[in-house]
Write a protein that binds this DNA or RNA. Structure first.
Lengths: 377, 377
DNA sequence: TGTACTTCGTTAGGAAGTTAACTAACGAAG
DNA sequence: CTTCGTTAGTTAACTTCCTAACGAAGTACA
């Protein structure tokens, strides 16, 4: 047993690259980490000794000598991601290469049980590196201890309830759910391969996740992308009211408008966005008009984002925003008002928030391995 | 004479730090660059041999042995910054530590002469590293050659006219003037010491310079911060028109509203923002009301920015935005609508654009020294 | 079944930078 | 005027990583 669990700098770099790749040969690690073959050899030896990496097979593809393949070892550990949604709680445990190790679901009330279930399903002996909890609230650094707290009161109680189930001593990071979903689109969704984009979520509320250079933009109060505070209505002779835009463009307002515009000839009035979009897809006139109107509203919101950020790509998500039927209308309004900007629909859907939270947790977990090892004892 | 003009990595790092500090002792360089004393010693020797640094004195302040002070050497060269404003052209030549070497001014038509005058005033023998031209237009990377071009036609002809006066072979970088002014606030203005803020310029046009982590955010089309494209008017039953917001909140509209609201009892109607703000400062009721209204409009604009970016600080500038009289009204409206955000007035004023362009040129010039030296011959 | 070719991994030597210790220079106190 | 504390700069040993060359282990082909 090594008395000094510190990693050399090159070993840390190799570990980070190995975690990102999942598994790789030594030459691959060398080119990905920008290190030479001998350095990678010694780094791999160091990681194997620390059980952070293991020899998982040999690559026997092409010509030439076959290379040894390495993967993450048992000591690399796991991370936990929790999505505290308004109705459902999703929990995910992942290894540091992102592979799913445990999964659990429950209602909001069953959050504690779901967390316990996922924790029990994690492999024994694997250290839990970090926990990320996604909440539907602005999150800001806590004054004490470097932790995070919901900045407003909305998500506070739920978070407190869940935190009793979390093992002590493991760093917990709170993150806004829209930011998490944006990260999911970045890593395995519609924004794959991009460096900068905006993820516009339209549901009961509206929110924007901003990714610039692969990093989430959080803002001075953790409130970047809180579009509910855009001035609205905005005109020469009207006073904007706080949060008025969310009431107007959110899911509730869409259904309210549907109820108001509905005529007997249209059949039963839809009571969910799903029904409304289905009727529009069938060619019903009233439903189609409502969808077109909604698309224009979303397009204006997107135009406001593009006017400030010019992100080049906007991914639409959320319970009323993710329908591809909206795309033509949104693109038309955005094109009329603002800069050339791609608009696509979310591909990760409802799981986006947990998936993104898990991505964030993995990134932080890798840091703890490569940084904690540097602490002077 | 050294046959190989390449710098070692440590010498490059030390040079960059020295350029930022202007002058420094070896221990200072070591701590600023994060290098050890012996490494700095050899780096300084290398820079001195290349005439990129010179021994400029000794620091004889405190106790202990007095340290040698080094500054930039004659071979470090100079950069040129040009502000092609709508009326005036400002030109500035700087050393790589930011010290002013030459200055020239002219009307828009005299741009070529002003550039020639500044170039002539630069010390002979000092290589010109780079040129930054600030234009009132969106700038985007040119297809060929890695240069920059105005993206729309507005500033194109002026830039072409000036470019004949620029010495060939020197890299030219085009930048938006609002972005330049934001950099000036960052380095020597109201945002000194900040990492993230927004510079909101209200004049004939409106624009926002976004600085995140000390870097200007340009956007996919180079159009980040082009607030003229914010949807306006924006309400349930109005169609937003492109650029309508600029017409409404810009300087022209302020004077137009003044003319409309003016009554005979108020005396002669002001025909400049200066006059209007002066009358308001004297306590004239009509002028005061117009200023208050303008402050509320600017506050709404700031709220739109804060809703998307949550920058923590907004610096107000421009011909009608820089008046500190606006601050209370802007702060009130922003506080009512959005997140806690500091609001202050610009401190660099009209010179901001050239100063910022010079800062940008210095940063790029330092890069050319430390990078060009790495090119394999 | 050799032989040639290709790729993997290790060994050896060198470049660059760090820590630690030492010498040099300067101010203040006795 | 000497001595002491403090800070600057240099020298030496050690660490880390790279390049270059070589041996090892595969595949392709006569």
């Amino acid at each position: 047993m090594a008395e000094t669990p510190r990693l050399t700098e090159s070993a840390s770099a190799v570990f980070a690259v190995l975690a990102q790749a999942g598994s790789a040969t030594r030459p691959q690690l060398a080119s990905l980490a920008g290190l030479s073959k001998p350095t990678v050899s010694s780094a791999v030896a160091e990681l194997e000794a620390a059980r952070l990496a293991t020899h998982s097979g040999t690559a026997s593809g092409g010509t030439g000598r076959s290379a040894a393949v390495y993967g993450l070892g048992p000591a690399s550990g796991a991370v936990l991601a929790v999505d505290l949604g308004p109705a459902r709680t999703l929990v995910r445990g992942c290894a540091l290469d992102g592979t799913l190790l445990a999964e659990a679901t429950g209602t909001r009330e069953e959050a504690v049980e779901a967390v316990r279930e996922a924790l029990d399903a994690l492999p024994v002996g694997a250290p839990l590196r970090t926990i990320v909890v996604a909440v539907g609230d602005v999150t800001a650094p806590d004054g004490a201890g470097g932790g995070m707290r919901p900045a407003t009161a909305k998500a506070g109680p739920v978070f407190d309830a869940v935190s009793v189930a979390l093992p002590p001593g493991v760093p917990v990071h709170l993150e806004n759910n829209v930011n998490c979903a944006a990260l999911a689109e970045l890593h395995e969704g519609a924004a794959l391969g991009r460096r900068t984009f905006g993820y516009l979520r339209i549901g009961v509320g509206i929110g924007l996740g901003i990714v610039i250079g692969g990093q989430v933009l959080r803002g001075a109060n953790g409130a970047a992308g809180e579009l509910a505070r855009l001035p609205y209505p905005w005109d020469d002779d009207r006073e904007p009211r706080q949060e008025a835009l969310e009431e107007y463009v959110g899911a509730h307002s869409l259904l309210r408008r549907a109820a108001a515009a509905w005529r007997d000839a249209d059949g039963p009035c839809p009571d969910s966005a799903d029904q409304l979009f289905a009727l529009a897809a069938e060619g019903r006139e009233t439903a189609g008009a409502l969808v077109a109107r909604h698309a224009a509203d979303v397009g204006r919101l997107a135009a406001a984002v593009a006017a400030v950020l010019d992100p080049g790509l906007i991914v639409l998500g959320g319970s009323t925003g993710a329908y591809p039927q909206l795309l033509p209308g949104v693109r038309a309004e955005l094109g009329r008002l603002s800069w050339p900007t791609e608009v696509v629909s979310s591909t990760v859907g409802d799981r986006g928030t947990v998936v993104g939270a898990a991505r964030l947790a993995v990134a932080r977990g890798v840091q703890t391995v490569t940084e904690a090892a540097w602490v002077k004892d």
